Amino acid sequence: NRLGIIYEIQGMKAVVLTSEGEFLIIRRRKDMKVGQQVSFENEDIYNV
Score class of each variant (00 low, 15 high):
T18F: 03
R27Q: 08
E22P: 02
I5E: 02
E43F: 03
V15T: 13
Y46G: 08
R27L: 09
F40D: 01
S19M: 14
N1E: 12
F23C: 12
R28W: 15
M12H: 13
Q37D: 06
N1D: 08
E22K: 08
Q10S: 15
N42W: 15
K30N: 14
K13M: 07
F23M: 14
G11Y: 07
G35L: 05
I25R: 06
V48T: 12
M32H: 13
L17A: 05
I5S: 03
D44H: 04
G21K: 06
V16C: 03
E22H: 09
G11K: 08
F23S: 09
I5Q: 04
D44W: 06
K30L: 10
R29D: 07
E43R: 07
E8A: 13
V15L: 12
F40V: 09
K33P: 01
G35I: 00
L3G: 13
R2T: 06
Y7D: 02
A14D: 00
R2V: 05
I9D: 00
A14K: 00
Y7T: 10
G21L: 05
R27K: 12
I26L: 04
F40H: 01
R27Y: 08
L3D: 10
G21D: 05
N1K: 10
E41V: 06
G21H: 03
N47C: 15
V15P: 00
D31S: 08
D44N: 03
T18W: 03
N47Q: 08
Q10H: 14
V16F: 01
G21P: 01
T18S: 09
L24W: 09
R2H: 04
E20Y: 05
I26P: 00
F23D: 01
K13P: 00
S39N: 15
S39Y: 12
M32R: 01
N1C: 12
I9P: 00
I26K: 00
G21V: 02
D44C: 05
E41T: 14
L24H: 05
Y46A: 09
I6H: 00
K13I: 07
M32V: 03
Y7H: 06
Y46H: 09
G4A: 05
E43H: 08
Y7L: 15
G21Q: 03
V16R: 00
A14I: 10
I9L: 08
F40R: 02
G11H: 04
Y7A: 13
E43S: 09
K13G: 06
K33M: 14
Q10G: 08
V16T: 01
G21F: 06
R27S: 06
I26W: 01
E22I: 12
E20I: 07
G11I: 04
G35M: 05
V38S: 02
R28M: 12
I26Q: 00
R28N: 09
L3H: 10
F23Q: 05
I5C: 08
T18L: 05
S19H: 07
K30G: 15
T18C: 06
K30D: 13
K33Y: 15
K33V: 14
V48P: 14
I5W: 10
V34S: 02
F23A: 06
R29Y: 05
E43K: 10
F40A: 03
G35K: 03
L24M: 09
M12W: 14
E8T: 09
E43P: 04
T18D: 03
V16P: 00
F40Y: 12
N42G: 04
F23G: 01
D31H: 13
M12K: 13
T18E: 01
S19F: 10
A14F: 06
M12I: 09
K13R: 10
D31L: 03
T18R: 01
I25A: 09
Y46N: 05
L3A: 10
V34N: 03
R28V: 15
I9T: 04
V34I: 12
L24K: 06
V38D: 00
V15F: 07
E8I: 05
E22G: 08
A14E: 00
R27M: 08
G11C: 08
E43N: 10
G35Y: 04
N1A: 12
S39K: 11
V15G: 04
M32Q: 05
Q36R: 06
V16W: 00
G4Q: 01
V38G: 00
